[in-house]
């Protein structure tokens, strides 16, 4: 479905809308997966739950990622008419993710980008806004568990979808090293 953007006067909304939607999305994906697992009589319930659920929120992120490049390039053109970023090398795409994508989605840029120049990239966000307010009444360990289970698939999916839209296959995993710092490990074929 092609998207055509009109220049709307003030197309902003309250950030809280997205925050609440993401909190609720994380909740329902958990419930939906438990149902799926029960229905299919899966033996290794825990593992199946984690990976099936990852698929749900990851898919949601993935679909957003697919459309994101178009949208961001359009935004950039609208703002200051500077040339489109160069997507010739994968490392430049990663820089685009670290700066433009992260800034517009999460309000800040990636703090650290590392690569082995052979298809592995590590992006570190020291204070990932989507998880920084999470605080479980059951304590720090539960906060970490819940974060890993429910809240990291979405950004992983976004990155994967975005790369896919630029013809790059990848696997993306996220790790919470020290809350709220998250590192995204991207493995690409190029």
């Amino acid at each position: 479905m092609p998207l055509e953007y009109d220049l709307l006067a003030d197309n902003t909304i309250n950030k809280s809308c997205l925050e609440y939607l993401l909190i609720e999305t994380a909740s329902i994906s958990h419930e939906a997966t438990v149902q799926v697992c029960d229905n299919e009589n899966v033996r290794d319930h825990e593992q199946a739950t984690a990976s099936a659920e990852g698929n749900l929120t990851e898919e949601i992120g993935y679909n957003i990622g697919l459309k994101l490049v178009d949208y961001l390039l359009y935004l950039q053109k609208g703002k200051n008419g500077t040339g489109t970023p160069k997507f010739d090398q994968v490392v430049n795409i990663m820089k685009f993710v670290c700066k433009n994508v992260w800034e517009s989605l999460f309000g800040r840029q990636i703090d650290n980008l590392r690569t082995n120049h052979r298809g592995t990239y590590v992006l570190v966000d020291r204070s990932f806004t989507m998880i920084s307010r999470l605080d479980s009444p059951l304590g720090v360990q539960d906060t970490l568990n819940q974060t890993r289970k429910h809240y990291l698939w979405y950004p992983c999916g976004i990155i994967r979808g975005l790369l896919e839209s630029l013809d790059i296959d990848s696997t993306v995993q996220a790790e919470v090293t020290e809350f709220p710092s998250v590192s995204f490990h991207i493995q690409t074929s190029k």
């Binding site: 307010r133 479980s136 720090v140």
Partner: peptide, 23 residues
Amino acid sequence: NTIVKNGLSPVDFKEGMVIKNMS
């Protein structure tokens, strides 16, 4: 910020539940 916008905190407290997150 620490209860309403915290995805891991309930906003409807059942009998006996209390606020206990450190933030």
